[in-house]
């Protein structure tokens, strides 16, 4: 891990317009991503965790420039790519690749898997013909598939094998960053372990940076170096994984950790601090701190003031009014 970030995101905002009324005029906006800042170094995994709809995939799509940000800045390997138009995106695309939850949906069912994996090599003019086939065969071997399988079609592979195809394709152009959006969520645990091990091996071999998106805290803790916890479009806590799991400071992180199940019957009934209520809609987020409607520790001020993300201890960023810089990291009191 070197110190210069390969991906730096500053104040990223993505609002999706909500149209309504007779004239289908814009009547509001879904604040899918609402001011997000983070960076990832070479060889590092930054985990993005949070409940459905909190904006994880949207961040992934924006940094991949599959959709345009509403505001903010994206710097990839030192180059500001925020304003790059699709035509100028080639070099950008080569540096940042993606792995999806369901690689099948993005694969042409009529093409042999070898052609699918080799597509980026052709598109970027890296290799053609026999040279391309050689490289694809190597990629197949590297992700644990037999090169003979290059002739098979996507539907002839199992879920785990298709995920290996997706990884091989992402790897083919030798990217700096891979955005992995729930890459193991659809896999059975016995296969999930195979894919997680492969992702870690590849990262160590090639110095890849991962933006790893997942709702599964155990998977997240396994693969990440640092983790950002999101709630309704904002990062509420960001720190190294050990600190996050041993000394979470944000009430939402605490709630997520206590809601997670573990394969240990002795832990049952230990889950005392279960947050109540549903996640509010990102089209109508609560004012002040977005989490105040479900927070055990909310005060009157939390309903009006949005907490900024502060570095409260070295490397530990928290957005909670009750967690000031240098404050007591002990348990919060519940207001009477």
């Amino acid at each position: 891990m070197t110190d210069a970030p390969v991906l730096q995101v500053d104040g990223l905002v993505k609002h999706f317009p909500i149209n309504g009324g007779l004239l289908q005029r814009q009547v509001g906006a879904v604040k899918a991503v609402d001011g997000v800042t983070f960076s990832i170094r070479r060889g590092e995994t930054l985990g993005l965790v949070g409940e459905s709809g909190c904006g994880k995939s949207t961040i992934g799509k924006v940094v991949l420039k599959l959709i345009e940000p509403t505001a903010g800045r994206i710097v990839l390997a030192g180059e500001d790519v925020t304003a790059l138009k699709p035509g100028a995106m080639w070099t950008h695309r080569r540096r940042i690749q993606t792995i999806f939850q369901d690689p099948y949906s993005s694969m042409n069912p009529r093409l042999p898997s070898g052609t699918i994996v080799g597509e980026p090599l052709e598109n970027f003019g890296i290799a053609r013909g026999a040279a391309r086939d050689d490289q694809v065969a190597q990629l197949f071997r590297r992700v644990g598939l037999r090169p003979e399988a290059m002739r098979k079609y996507a539907h002839e592979f199992s879920g785990g094998q298709r995920q290996r195809l997706g990884i091989a394709k992402a790897l083919s152009v030798n990217p700096d960053v891979i955005v992995a959006d729930e890459p193991v969520s659809a896999l059975d645990v016995s296969v999930q372990a195979q894919v997680l091990n492969l992702l870690i091996d590849l990262q160590e071999e090639y110095g890849l940076a991962y933006l790893f998106i997942s709702h599964d805290l155990a998977v997240m803790r396994h693969i990440s170096h640092r983790i950002a916890v999101m709630y309704l479009g904002r990062i509420v806590e960001l720190t190294d994984k050990r600190t996050l799991f041993t000394q979470p400071l944000h009430p939402y992180t605490e709630a997520l950790l206590s809601a997670a199940t573990a394969p240990d019957p002795k832990r049952r009934r230990q889950r005392k601090k279960i947050v109540q209520g549903d996640v509010p809609s990102p089209a109508k987020p609560p004012p002040g701190c977005h989490f105040h409607t479900r927070c055990l520790y909310a005060t009157a001020e939390c309903r009006v003031t949005a907490p900024p993300l502060l570095e409260v201890a070295p490397g530990h960023h928290v957005a909670c009014l009750r967690r000031p810089v240098g404050g007591d990291p002990g348990p919060l009191s519940i207001p009477g």
């Binding site: 016995s190 803790r221 997670a260 394969p263």
Partner: peptide, 10 residues
């Protein structure tokens, strides 16, 4: 095998 294959939080 299953129990050893899962990443664990505890």
């Amino acid at each position: 095998g299953l129990m050893r294959a899962i990443p664990r939080l505890d």
